[in-house]
Design a protein around this nucleic acid. Structure first.
Lengths: 201, 201, 201, 201
DNA sequence: GATGAATGAGCATTCATTCAT
DNA sequence: AATGAATGAATGCTCATTCAT
């Protein structure tokens, strides 16, 4: 009977907050700043979020979930390890790297507001399985201990994201494309394979 | 930038600020917080620094300089590329990784207060030269374009630092040692070389 | 003042508000708090009350009226002054003292929202008459001036209520029973009388 | 070397706060309201008090302490119970009753911010001793149990204060003088004594 | 130079009340 | 009539920086 809670409004707040938090930092963005750009009263923010912390938490958590869940679904649906690797390389990493705001939040404020180890561990398990299966498919012995594998994934993944972030925010003269082709090179070399883009559907 | 009486006092302030900024974040550490722990009056901070920003700037800039300068000096003094690589691997990276507070500041607040691209570019040049020379020494053709080389260095370096940071601050179950032995493995594999610790002097 | 559909709903709101106002204070109880406990929408409060002030006003005014009106009726129906005094002592004061929430509101917020002097004056008149009649019945000269009588009633009445309130809310180690037997003692001494509980009907 | 903490400023804040809290109530007086009247910046309040609660706490606690301590000292210095009673009646109660703001805070907000039972108990002990000694001096058997004595004191004391408060804030047509002469009457009757004002020194 | 009280703009958050649905 | 999201003024409090002492 009364007005309904408007999910669209929540998304507008979340999007604007994410943009500003990534750009200026969490503490240098006031709640007033957030609503100024989207022409909503301050009070509205607190209809949809418990407090300012909850906004950034939601931005990181939901952004990451979206990415991770669709990656997981795509991997589950694809039996070939090589094609799964292609999916990661050609579809999902570009998706993530395009969302520099999310990457920035993840790296700069993520630690303070969400539990990153969960997210990285889940990702490591998923990618680790692809790597393992790919090695089996290619008849290669896996020469990395599990500990080394996690380290490798962490270094590559965080390093890639940080490189993307710095190339956007500082003046690092590298692009998302450079990082992607570097990762491609590493994988292709390691597995003596040639990864083609997956045919779109 | 004040260069007044008591350099010792300046260092005490800088050390405490670095510790707190890394631990709680820049914005969640007040100038009052900094002096509370070291029993100095607030005013004294402004004898040694122009403002709060200048403190974190100095912490990052000077910490990085110390590291970089001594690395540069050591490299300049060592003609053998292999031994230079050993120095980096056995002496300088451990030094840097031990200083988790500096690594944290560099990654989390560095972007906002200092120019990271300078620092990374300088480092890339230095390490790039070592890599190149090592390839030459080992009679290997360098298959990476300069662009790819910078990307590789950036990914490895930032990724390593971020992994160190997260293993300390989040619960990532990896240690500084894991990261170092992973980097060693990569280099030794890439150059078919066995890197021994440099004899101490 | 609304006198709408559902008188039951109004009473539920009033009861919950009274409880919370007495417990936490008027300002530390939001209108949201009131409806939370009784599972009603906020808006409904404004169907039955013009604003938040009107709720506490009603709680005090109606609570006091109920008490006073039935006291008045009982006194009117009882010709004997001694038995009227017994009624007050054994039936009405216990009734009032049991309703600590009302007593608390009366004393702490009453002043701000209702006119206490009216209530006290009306009560003084009523009890004053009982006292006077009792003195006449006992053949005692009344040695108090009317002014002193009002003072005495005010001191005794407010003091009793405050003692009850403090024994409930602070840790005063006294009970409602102590206050009642103290008042009994005073009256019995003053009038050389023995007040028996009125036979119930 | 720097400016000293100014006790005078603290007292100015405290006095203005006490006045406003008593007049309008704690919640209807903002910290801004307090400083407006005394032309100080908001920040200053927080130099002298941790938060708003601490102001009212100090007003009640310190006001009460002042009253109680000087009463205690005067009683300790006076061996005659009758003269101690005179002191209470002619010097200290008038002092307390004159400070209606303190009385108001004590009764209306005291409960929420300080521990009233402590204060009342200490006072009951002190006055109880005077009453006991006076009874002994007059050769009277004390017919009240200790429990009744505390009740009596609590009722009289709180009742007197509340009567004072209501006569000021609501329109109760009684004055401080009425309450004092009523108390005098009670004591003089109870102890068959004539209490003269103590000669001033 | 040393000190730490002073300052006041700015912040996150609340909440009585309204009113579109 | 019923609902509960919407609203924005107002609140208590912080804190980088200044400057009287």
């Amino acid at each position: 009977m009364a007005r309904e809670r408007d999910e669209g409004k929540r998304q507008v707040i979340l999007a604007e907050a994410k943009r500003l938090f990534a750009q200026r930092g969490f503490h240098d963005t006031s709640v007033q700043d957030i609503v100024k750009g989207i022409d909503l009263p301050v009070g509205s923010v607190y209809t949809y979020f418990n407090n300012k912390d909850a906004i950034i938490k939601a931005a990181i958590e939901e952004g990451w979930s979206d990415f991770h869940d669709s990656l997981e679904a795509a991997c589950a649906a694809e039996p070939s390890a090589a094609r799964r690797m292609s999916l990661i390389l050609y579809r999902f990493l570009p998706l993530l790297f395009k969302d520099v705001d999310l990457v920035s939040l993840f790296l700069s404020e993520g630690l303070r507001f969400t539990s990153l180890d969960d997210k990285l561990e889940r990702l490591a398990r998923l990618i680790g399985a692809v790597v393992n299966d790919l090695a089996k498919e290619r008849g290669l012995a896996v020469s990395l201990s599990p500990r080394q594998a996690v380290t490798a994934l962490s270094v590559f993944f965080l390093g890639s994201m940080d490189t993307i972030r710095l190339s956007r925010m500082a003046g690092l003269p590298l692009s998302e494309k450079d990082v992607l082709s570097f990762i491609k090179l590493i994988i292709e070399t390691a597995f003596s394979i040639n990864l083609e883009p997956p045919e779109e559907n």
